[in-house]
Design a protein around this nucleic acid. Structure first.
Lengths: 141, 141
DNA sequence: TGTATTATATATTAAGTCTATATAGAATTA
DNA sequence: TAATTCTATATAGACTTAATATATAATACA
């Protein structure tokens, strides 16, 4: 039930980009240093974020990555759902066909409702909110 | 972020016992058949539930397991927190010392708040509620 | 034109976790 | 004493996680 490093690091990666929004492309080496995550691992994590069009990139010197949309328009719900491969806590919640008991199992719907509560919360928080929290000091939550 | 089979099967195990509450000890073979989970795996899952005093057992023929408390008094929040080893989505949420950045990382508190939303929901559902849902037909959620 | 810089693509891997199964032993009933 | 059930411990294959490594492609700038 723990979040993977993929979604946790991915969130920090995007937060870092949000904190430098409108400052041109930022290369991963810089983010890696600031966030203390290996460049190689960030390179891997950024792939789905590019595919899903949250991030645009330019190659070469002075190249790097930047957010495709303003931080106000990207929620943590989208990010976590993307990097955790779906917004569900159990396979059967989204794909009833994986279990024969789906149509009469009361736990299946519970997992669905709980995931909903979780993602309602995540969808209410944007990268801009997160950046604001960071500015205000992490304590002020 | 998916729930482990341990907590999903564990919930079904306890639900089955709730559905047969006050009917004396039930052996795992019976539950295994009803829930379509191997006896051997259930034997493993029931250990922490016994240690945490949710389940009592008697050995020998006519032996089996039964809930130590009425189904109304056991919430899914307790069960999931027990079997997922804590009610958190990230190690740092509960143990700030695992990461040097804890005191200034805004994501840490987010994961904490999201886990809270999730467990608020889970704590609001008892085994009795779950049994009632099962009786009413799984659709009726 | 050439070199440094950055992104991109693919492969590899070590460790750990998940999901079980197997074997042996202890307690209880009849 | 035999059958039944729980209990304890060990084992194991598959998968996932969390990376690292190597090679290639594109671009800026001197």
């Amino acid at each position: 039930m723990k979040l993977s490093t993929k979604s946790r690091y991915g969130t920090r990666l995007l937060l870092d980009m949000a904190q430098h929004y409108d400052q041109g492309p930022i290369h991963l080496g810089e983010i890696a240093k600031r966030q203390d995550i290996s460049v190689k691992y960030l390179e891997q994590i950024i792939i789905p974020l590019k595919k899903a069009n949250y991030v645009l990139s330019v190659r070469g010197p002075k190249g790097g990555h930047f957010l495709a949309r303003p931080p106000e328009e990207i929620t943590l719900g989208e990010i976590v759902a993307l990097l955790e491969e779906g917004p569900s806590l159990a396979e059967c919640s989204e794909h009833a066909e994986v279990c024969q008991r789906s149509n009469l199992c009361p736990t299946r719907l519970i997992w669905k409702e709980v995931a909903q509560a979780m993602f309602d919360k995540l969808h209410a928080i944007t990268l801009a909110d997160l950046a604001e929290r960071a500015r205000a000091g992490a304590q002020g939550a």
